[in-house]
Amino acid sequence: MAHEDHKFLRPLYRRILLVVFCAGWTVFELTMGQGMWAAIAGGMTAYGAWLFLIDYKPERAKPPEET
């Protein structure tokens, strides 16, 4: 099972909160004048938005059916 398929991340609100947290961290680092950390947090935000919001496939997250 891939990390993005973990059952904790199935509800949409948790995935949105994760991305919003990373975006807030990016803004915080920018306001503190830490460009490098802001770039790292911004990259995490972009990757998280792609992985958890844009490319997320709920059918991948379903557990396999038992026969």
Results as ranks from 00 to 15, higher is better:
residue 18 L to S: 14
residue 33 G to V: 04
residue 33 G to S: 06
residue 30 L to M: 13
residue 49 A to P: 09
residue 43 G to C: 08
residue 51 L to Q: 05
residue 13 Y to M: 12
residue 65 E to P: 03
residue 23 A to L: 00
residue 64 P to D: 05
residue 30 L to I: 11
residue 53 L to R: 00
residue 52 F to W: 14
residue 2 A to D: 08
residue 59 E to F: 12
residue 35 G to V: 00
residue 3 H to S: 12
residue 5 D to G: 01
residue 13 Y to W: 14
residue 20 V to D: 15
residue 66 E to A: 10
residue 65 E to A: 08
residue 1 M to Y: 14
residue 2 A to S: 08
residue 36 M to G: 02
residue 29 E to F: 11
residue 46 A to S: 08
residue 2 A to K: 10
residue 35 G to I: 00
residue 32 M to S: 11
residue 33 G to D: 08
residue 50 W to H: 06
residue 37 W to E: 12
residue 19 V to L: 12
residue 58 P to S: 12
residue 5 D to W: 04
residue 49 A to I: 04
residue 38 A to C: 03
residue 31 T to S: 08
residue 40 I to W: 14
residue 48 G to I: 07
residue 31 T to F: 09
residue 34 Q to T: 01
residue 8 F to S: 06
residue 15 R to L: 13
residue 3 H to V: 12
residue 10 R to V: 10
residue 11 P to Y: 04
residue 55 D to M: 11
residue 14 R to T: 07
residue 19 V to P: 13
residue 55 D to A: 15
residue 46 A to C: 10
residue 12 L to P: 07
residue 61 A to N: 14
residue 25 W to P: 01
residue 29 E to D: 10
residue 48 G to K: 07
residue 17 L to I: 14
residue 57 K to E: 13
residue 39 A to R: 05
residue 4 E to W: 06
residue 16 I to C: 07
residue 1 M to V: 15
residue 9 L to Q: 08
residue 49 A to F: 12
residue 66 E to V: 10
residue 38 A to F: 03
residue 65 E to I: 06
residue 58 P to W: 14
residue 11 P to D: 07
residue 4 E to D: 06
residue 28 F to P: 00
residue 35 G to A: 00
residue 41 A to R: 05
residue 42 G to H: 01
residue 61 A to S: 15
residue 9 L to G: 07
residue 15 R to C: 13
residue 22 C to Y: 04
residue 30 L to C: 09
residue 2 A to E: 06
residue 37 W to S: 11
residue 39 A to N: 05
residue 9 L to Y: 14
residue 20 V to W: 15
residue 14 R to L: 10
residue 49 A to N: 07
residue 9 L to V: 10
residue 42 G to I: 00
residue 28 F to Q: 03
residue 23 A to S: 02
residue 64 P to H: 04
residue 32 M to D: 09
residue 10 R to W: 06
residue 37 W to Q: 13
residue 53 L to D: 02
residue 61 A to H: 14
residue 63 P to N: 07
residue 65 E to W: 07
residue 38 A to Y: 03
residue 24 G to V: 00
residue 55 D to P: 05
residue 1 M to S: 15
residue 2 A to V: 05
residue 35 G to H: 01
residue 12 L to D: 09
residue 53 L to N: 01
residue 45 T to A: 01
residue 47 Y to S: 06
residue 30 L to W: 12
residue 51 L to D: 03
residue 33 G to Q: 09
residue 18 L to N: 12
residue 7 K to R: 13
residue 56 Y to H: 13
residue 54 I to M: 08
residue 3 H to E: 08
residue 66 E to N: 08
residue 19 V to F: 13
residue 62 K to L: 14
residue 37 W to P: 04
residue 27 V to Y: 05
residue 36 M to N: 05
residue 11 P to V: 09
residue 38 A to T: 02
residue 35 G to N: 01
residue 47 Y to Q: 04
residue 19 V to K: 13
residue 50 W to Y: 14
residue 7 K to T: 14
residue 60 R to Q: 14
residue 36 M to Y: 06
residue 46 A to D: 06
residue 48 G to N: 10
residue 39 A to W: 06
residue 42 G to W: 00
residue 58 P to H: 14
residue 53 L to I: 02
residue 39 A to E: 07
residue 25 W to K: 04
residue 47 Y to F: 11
residue 45 T to K: 00
residue 42 G to T: 00
residue 22 C to V: 01
residue 57 K to I: 08
residue 63 P to T: 07
residue 45 T to M: 02
residue 39 A to I: 06
residue 14 R to G: 03
